[in-house]
Design a protein around this nucleic acid. Structure first.
Lengths: 146, 146
DNA sequence: AAATTATGGTTTCAAGTGAAACCATTTGCA
DNA sequence: TGCAAATGGTTTCACTTGAAACCATAATTT
């Protein structure tokens, strides 16, 4: 007799994770889209360019730092450059490589969105107590290192 | 002077959550695809139909239970019915509503995939200690209730 | 009962996505 | 030095996806 023991989706970890992550990302993405005409991937690009300002990051570096594939990054950059939020130069001595910098416009977006992002994070953390927050960080370190 | 305090993406909670969730989902989805020609959404449909067997679920019910939108469910069902993994009848007394049931074929898939899913979950949990597991559940209950 | 509104479900359309092909340049090596 | 392989980046193609329009049926209002 076959084992029909059903999987309880709503207690299944990968499922719950994906629900949570989708809800959070959706909410944030929608806000960035509406208020700044900025996609999630574009925002991530801006965030790393801000963080590693002065390092002269290339598109490849950005892809690595954001865990997005290079096609996504290429497209996000195309839009950001077109909107003059990012300046693209060419690397001295390697004409394949681009050197990416936030423009003044890009910094302005960053300076508004970054605090906003932190608010979102705080709202989320506000639902947890101190211990839960600590353990959550530890869990993420273990499950998705780097 | 503007505040350029950069957002550290790799410590930003929504970002980390999305990375983790994507990695896990991707790995699982790929396996189901390769081994059973089954998409993630199709698997979720099968899982709820198995779980609520005998309840005569409609497509709408499935959408609710899986937190997927009705378009996704409609398409998943179309494929599942075409593959004879799900049987679709029409509700007595409401000709709009469908009544969905797993076929023998559908049950067979379920009986193989459900244990496999549990293995995936266990592998994940194996990286955590007992306390972390308990707290993780609590965190998910708080952040993504229902 | 006729007319309006709501509901279950599918289709359509536009946008987003990844894989693979591609181009230019650079690196490694015979 | 010259030629094959590798690398940074963009484009193409086929597929997925969500929003809105849509169709049929049911429920509600008058």
């Amino acid at each position: 007799m076959p084992d029909h023991t059903p999987l309880e989706l709503e207690r299944f970890l990968p499922y719950r994770l994906s629900i949570l992550s989708n809800r959070v990302s959706q909410a944030i993405a929608r806000e960035y889209q509406d208020r700044f005409d900025l996609s999630m991937t574009e925002w991530r690009v801006i965030a790393v360019l801000a963080r590693f300002d002065g390092h002269g990051l290339s598109a490849r570096d950005v892809a690595e730092r954001t865990e997005m594939d290079k096609v996504a990054v290429s497209r996000a950059l195309a839009r950001l450059v077109a909107a003059k939020r990012v300046v693209r130069r060419i690397h001295d001595g390697d004409k394949r490589r681009s050197v990416l910098l936030l423009s003044a416009k890009g910094w302005k977006i960053h300076d508004v969105v970054a605090p906003l992002a932190r608010v979102h994070e705080r709202e989320m953390l506000a639902l947890l107590d101190v211990e839960e927050r600590k353990v959550l960080t530890r869990i993420l370190d273990k499950l998705a290192p780097l």
